[in-house]
């Protein structure tokens, strides 16, 4: 079976500065991949490149295939239908990712309507409403009937992130890209969202690209990790293997840092 995402020797330049250097990364259908790195490592840029959303002014070379379609050099028109059908993205800060002036239910209805139309069905209002409720139930938003009429600022951070995830699910993507989706959340909320993501990905047979700087968070939801530093992939492998026996110095320093806080919690600092 061919890969959903196939990035081969991708380099991205801003002027004469190299932001990504020979990055290769592939994601098979249903695979859960973690992209780890610190600020400036190029991890978010890699994800943007995968869906053809590089900022103007950046030059890319190499190959990025999204569901068999070459992204590099492609017209935005040809890529538009891929985003949303093949991939959907959940961002770090749901407050800025949601429209502040629309009730959240209507925001979920929008991509839902687009998908149903594409499938050749003009959904009735009642059908759309029912499907929005189903999605909100799937993401375990408490009391979805009332909350779907609320505006983003009337919900808590965790509830907003659930809405953002519901919006992504409405597209029924084959690949869910989650860019630091729990970084802005409380620890207890983070644990709930991580559980939810893991369950949804498994239930819907989606692939997951989970981008984070937080190793233990990544470890909870993915099978394989890709470690990036300064725009270069330094290490990749199954998560248990990489985290227990990191080969690259940089990965080692990350793992050591993460373990030091774990040890502090165990009281052996």
């Amino acid at each position: 079976m061919s890969n959903l995402v196939d990035i081969g020797n991708l380099s991205v330049q801003a002027g004469n500065r190299t932001l990504l250097d020979n990055v290769s990364l592939s994601i098979a259908p249903g695979e859960r991949v973690g992209l780890i790195g610190e600020s400036g490592s190029g991890k978010s840029l890699t994800a943007l490149a995968a869906i053809g959303l590089l900022a103007p002014g950046l030059t890319a070379s190499g190959s990025v295939q999204l569901a068999g379609q070459q992204v590099i050099g492609a017209q935005d028109r040809t890529l538009m239908p891929l985003r949303g059908t093949v991939t959907a993205t959940v961002f770090q800060e749901p407050l800025t990712a949601l429209d502040p002036l629309l009730p959240v239910g209507r925001q979920i209805a929008e991509p839902l309507r687009r998908r149903l139309r594409r499938d050749g069905r003009g959904p009735s209002r009642a059908e759309l409403d029912a499907k929005v409720q189903t999605l909100l139930t799937q993401v375990a938003l408490p009391d979805p009937a009332t909350r779907s009429r609320r505006y983003p600022h009337e919900l808590s951070g965790g509830q907003r992130q659930r809405v953002a995830i519901a919006m992504a699910l409405a597209c029924r993507p084959q690949l869910l890209i989650a860019d630091e989706p729990t970084t802005a959340l409380d620890v207890t909320t983070q644990a709930e969202i991580l559980r939810l993501l893991a369950k949804l990905v498994a239930d819907n047979g989606m692939a997951l690209l989970f981008i984070s700087h937080d190793l233990p968070v990544v470890a909870r939801v993915v099978d394989r990790v890709v470690v990036m530093q300064h725009g270069v992939v330094v290490e990749t492998g199954p998560v248990a293997e990489v985290f227990s026996a990191p080969r690259h110095d940089y990965t080692r320093s990350l793992v050591a840092a993460a373990r030091s806080f774990d040890r502090a919690l165990e009281g052996v600092a």
Binding site: V187, T188, A191, P216, E241, D262, L265
Partner: peptide, 27 residues
């Protein structure tokens, strides 16, 4: 800190501690 984290008494502290993601144990 050491005592509280080793034997958290309040349910909230327990929930907080349980929510902290940890590194997976070795192979």
């Amino acid at each position: 800190t050491r005592d509280v984290l080793a034997r958290p008494k309040h349910p909230y502290t327990q929930a907080l501690l349980a929510s902290v993601p940890r590194m997976p144990e070795g192979l």
